[in-house]
């Protein structure tokens, strides 16, 4: 029809026959996969909050999960170390080191020591800085003072907090600023020497300077940890991550290398989201 005007701005990169979804298939011979999900479905009661979340995450890389509020990205992240247990029903497989960790037989407490998590709001315990880090270790039988001292120093250094707090390790962690507290929480998770670190909008409650410090910390950690991060901040995703997954209405719409997602997305919806047309 002659006067049919398409109001939807479509990027020049998006071709007429663009796919509706694109999931980067990580070939096992080229990439070392740290954790992957298959047929993941999450229900809140009868409500399906997330479906078809099939993703593989490469080891020692940072993967960002982006999408509007309610798109299912946090739900997905929290399913990875079973933090949704008792909150939601998670169906499907989560493969970690060749084992499906989404089964009853898995000791979730042990598993979470391999797959650590940091939340949106800093949540240090009402304990000293030192004890915040050592507490989970002492509960698992690490009691040698020298060993604990070393772990405290190493993890605080990794989280780029050591220089700021080394003289007041016995001070209450509740007296730290938001940015410091968040880095302490990261250090606390690192003290358990996890494989994978899940971060749920770790810097959205922080001011820009603290946020930048947390980002620097994550880039440092990349050499030793697989990091999966949920973020609302598109610049942050573009700056720090190697891969990006775009979630929309409980589905992964596009998953690819970050530079591809942010320069040449294959799906029109992704393009709309990253160029700010919705969300």
């Amino acid at each position: 029809m002659a006067n049919n005007i398409d109001l939807k701005p479509v990027s020049e990169f998006i071709s007429e026959n663009a796919p509706e979804r694109f999931i980067y298939d990580m070939p096992a011979e080229k990439h070392e996969v740290a954790i992957s999900t298959k047929n993941l479905q999450v229900f809140y009661g009868d409500n399906l909050a997330l479906s078809e979340g099939d993703l593989s995450f490469e080891r020692y890389k940072i993967t960002s999960l982006i999408g509007a509020s309610g798109s299912g990205k946090s739900t997905f992240l929290r399913s990875l170390n079973r933090m949704n247990d008792g909150v939601a029903t998670v169906k499907g497989n989560i493969m970690y080191r060749g084992v499906d960790i989404n089964t009853k037989a898995i000791d979730v407490y042990e598993m979470r020591r391999h797959i650590g998590m940091v939340f949106q709001r800093p949540n240090p315990f009402a304990k000293s800085i030192y004890n915040n880090i050592t507490f989970a270790l002492t509960q698992r039988g690490v009691t040698k003072k020298q060993e604990l001292d070393e772990i405290v120093e190493t993890s605080l250094r990794q989280a780029a907090l050591w220089d700021e707090v080394k003289d007041e390790l016995n001070k209450s962690a509740l007296a730290l600023s938001g940015g410091q507290a968040q880095r302490l929480v990261i250090a606390r998770a690192l003290a358990l020497k996890p494989d994978i670190l899940l971060l749920d909008e770790p810097s959205s409650a922080l001011d820009p300077i603290s946020s930048a410090q947390v980002e620097d910390t994550l880039l440092e950690l990349k050499n030793k940890y697989t990091i999966i991060i949920v973020t609302h901040n598109m610049q942050q995703a573009a700056r720090i991550s190697d891969y990006t997954a775009f979630f929309h209405m409980g589905k992964v719409i596009e998953y690819d290398l970050t530079r591809k997602i942010f320069t040449r997305p294959k799906v029109a919806l992704t393009n709309d989201y990253i160029s700010g047309n919705f969300g």
């Binding site: 170390n81 933090m83 407490y109 042990e110 598993m111 979470r112 020591r113 650590g116 998590m117 940091v118 939340f119 709001r121 949540n123 240090p124 315990f125 009402a126 507490f135 989970a136 509960q139 698992r140 929480v185 606390r188 998770a189 358990l192």
Partner: peptide
């Protein structure tokens, strides 16, 4: 006591009792 504290505990692999 905010739920964040309980989440912090379980994310560190602590049981609910601990």
């Amino acid at each position: 006591i905010p739920n964040l504290q309980r989440e912090a505990g379980s994310a560190l692999g602590l049981s609910r009792w601990e």
